[in-house]
Simulated scan of single mutants.
Amino acid sequence: MNIQNCELADIPAILRLYQAARDLQIERKMVVWPHFDDSFVQKEIEEGRQWKLVKDNEIACNWAIAYNDQEIWGDQDQNDGVYIHRICTNPNFRGNGYIHDIVVWAKEHAEQKGKTYIRLDTLGNNQKLIKHYTSAGFDFLGVFNLSDTASLPKHYQDEPDCLLFELKLW
């Protein structure tokens, strides 16, 4: 298993993973991610913010990061966190607990960047995800209504309940 930055050549595979995630979200009656276009993913890759966990020469898991997230975290964002977005597991690798590997990686990455927190969010009151993220060490901070979602992807505009999770490094 190997964690590394995504490359432009990974865009088709990432978009397939996003579609598999949308299919699962529809099946489980969850908040469904919008379609992200190539240019959106390309920009994140060029900025070094798309990551992948590779196993057996295949992307087993993919996620994006940010170093600020004012629209979601408001005043809690003090330039002190790594924000994880769109964790997406390849259907062939689901059930392997990759969130724990992502957390180990994120702790190291956050320390290298001088950050104090690892943060993530999800939409809808999803009890299974609450349990999943808290089992990986995140504190569940509660359900919040986002006030200004105009610059966020569409699914944030359609769903009022935003669940916030935080892991403090020290």
Results as ranks from 00 to 15, higher is better:
D148F: 04
L146H: 02
A150Q: 14
K107F: 01
V104D: 13
S135A: 15
S135E: 08
G142R: 05
S147M: 09
V104L: 07
K107P: 00
Q112M: 14
K128F: 11
L129G: 03
E111V: 12
G114W: 09
I118C: 12
K113H: 15
L141C: 10
Q127N: 11
G114Q: 10
A110N: 07
F138I: 04
A110P: 06
W105F: 15
D139A: 14
H109W: 06
Y117Q: 12
W105M: 03
F140A: 03
E111F: 06
S147P: 00
N145T: 13
A150F: 07
N125D: 14
F144S: 01
K107V: 06
S135Q: 09
K128A: 15
F138T: 01
Y133G: 03
S151G: 08
H132S: 05
N125H: 11
K154Q: 12
L120V: 06
V103I: 08
A150T: 14
A106P: 03
G124F: 09
T149H: 05
E108Q: 07
L146E: 01
A110S: 14
Y117F: 15
H132L: 14
V103P: 00
K154S: 08
K131I: 02
Q127W: 07
S147N: 12
T149V: 15
A106K: 05
V104A: 13
E111N: 09
T116L: 15
T134D: 12
D121R: 01
T134R: 11
E108C: 00
A150G: 04
N125S: 12
R119K: 11
E111W: 04
I130A: 02
T116N: 15
Y117E: 11
Y117K: 14
V143E: 12
P153L: 08
F138G: 03
V104K: 13
F140V: 04
A136Q: 00
L120S: 10
Q127T: 13
D148K: 13
T122E: 06
L123D: 04
K115T: 06
F138Y: 06
A106L: 02
F144T: 03
S151E: 11
A136W: 00
E108D: 10
R119T: 07
I102N: 00
S151A: 13
S151F: 05
I118K: 10
T134Y: 10
I102S: 00
G142P: 00
F140W: 14
A136P: 01
F144Y: 14
T149F: 06
L152S: 05
